[in-house]
Write a protein that binds this DNA or RNA. Structure first.
Lengths: 183, 183
DNA sequence: TCTAATGTGTTACACTTGTTACCTTTATGA
DNA sequence: TCATAAAGGTAACAAGTGTAACACATTAGA
């Protein structure tokens, strides 16, 4: 991959990523071919390979963009409370419900959350300096991992259940659950 | 796939799975070909396709066997405490350190834990009737998801750090961390 | 404006994948 | 023990993958 950082290349990347989302609505992920993606994006197969290593690379690109957006949204809230961040995280995904359900249908949710892993740590690193976060991250890095993984797993369960419970109620229930538990 | 349940077929599956582990020590997962696996297992390519759908199917087979073994080990402990199960879970993986580090090197850890997802729920379903578990699973299914996801995420972090901390100390620290935190 | 630099398309290629039809070998129990 | 089902092998196939050489198009800045 030589020239993938220019403006046009970025547009083409977007076209291909969008093409993937379109094609996913009709075909399974595995049966989608590069040729198909290139045709849908109105680009040549060669261009695809200049911009991406393979199909999965397109997914990574897509997910990375999503998580950066999510991170920005959380940052813009300027909140310092753990549960506010969790709420904001789930709200973000609730706004993209149809996208998540498409991923669910295509069995791509696990892949999404693989990519999510590092970005989520970034989010909690961001609130690291705040009071509440210090309890989680400074004392023990494994606790932070626990928290991040728990969050994702719950999101996964939520999408599996078609996200019928509103995100606000979900978090409310969760908070109550935590308070009533002693391990 | 027609005939994959007999004794010989099972042996052949094992051969192929073992072959994958051998080849992984020298080649990246993506560059490994079916031909290569078949050769290493001393079987024909055709036989491979009779037993598995593709390369990933071999991984699933491998991981499924691992998690069933793990489940059996936990069941054999006849314990009813949440933290005992967690400890047993981490002990199981500590005994298979070299395997996990191989998966880490091959960037297959996320895939391993995708497969783990459903089996872990099974483990916690198993202790569902016990006192402690009821707090987690009966009150709120999302809490169970949180717990399972947290566990995996922590395991992931542990492997990322080359599993240098002994599992017993890891869990000990974790317990202390939980007790000292109020969310 | 017009020249580099960047981006794209065409064609061709060696290789891998997943499947098929047909045949031979091996294992097991009635 | 021997008939039969299960397992494995050979060869060939269409389709897709990833790469390359080369030519053409577009954009941006001096």
């Amino acid at each position: 991959m030589n020239t993938t950082n220019g403006k046009i290349a970025e547009q083409s990347k977007k076209k291909i990523a969008d093409a993937l989302l379109v094609v996913l609505q009709q075909y399974g992920y595995k049966e989608i071919t590069i040729t198909q993606l290139a045709q849908e994006a109105k680009l040549s197969r060669k261009t695809f390979y200049r911009l991406f290593a393979d199909k999965e690379d397109v997914l990574s690109y897509l997910f990375e963009k999503l998580y950066i957006e999510c991170f920005e949204q959380i940052k813009s809230q300027h909140t310092q409370y753990y549960w506010d961040i969790v709420q904001c995280y789930f709200d973000f995904w609730e706004e993209r419900k149809s996208l998540l359900l498409l991923f669910k249908q295509s069995h791509l949710l696990p892949v999404l959350f693989d990519g999510a892993y590092k970005y989520s740590f970034g989010i909690f690193e961001y609130i690291r300096s705040k009071d509440v976060a210090e309890h989680l991250s400074l004392q023990l890095p494994y606790l932070l991992a626990y928290s991040v993984g728990g969050m994702h797993s719950m999101l996964l369960k939520w999408v599996e259940n078609d996200m019928t419970v509103p995100s606000q109620i979900l978090i409310e229930q969760l908070k109550n659950g935590f308070n009533s538990i002693e391990l």
